[in-house]
Amino acid sequence: MNSRPLMLLRFATSAIEEIGSTPHGKVSIFPVTGGSFEGERLRGKVLAGGGDWVTALADGTFELDLRVTLETDDGALIHMTFTGVRDDANHYLRTLPRFETAAPKYAFLNRLLAVGIGEIRPEGPVHAIEEIL
């Protein structure tokens, strides 16, 4: 499959909210307090208020469900979500981001599918997001 870089996205998170064991698994919420994103076609900051709803599944993997708002350096707001899988045993953290925006300049985001290659760094999660061509 062909892809091209869309952005490098960094999140700042605050203390985890442990919901605990639910019928689907152990649920933890990682609040997003900020961050930044940078790519050839867009750059800006992550607004506080989003988060990643993470469920620890019975097979040892984590199911990710993230919602955040991105603000570009020229003032457009972009609603971003992803689902994904984190499998620490296999060093695998991959996501499927989707975007929604009303800003005409960034409407191309409404029409694409993407894949994120994630990594947990000491300063927070980093996702290299590629557009699927």
Binding site: M1, D59, T61, G84, V85, D87, N90, Y92, R94, T95, L96, L113, V115, I132
Partner: peptide, 12 residues
């Protein structure tokens, strides 16, 4: 086939 539970895929 449990390897399928642990991956994401893309399709054309």
């Amino acid at each position: 086939y449990t390897f399928l539970n642990r991956l994401v895929a893309v399709a054309s």
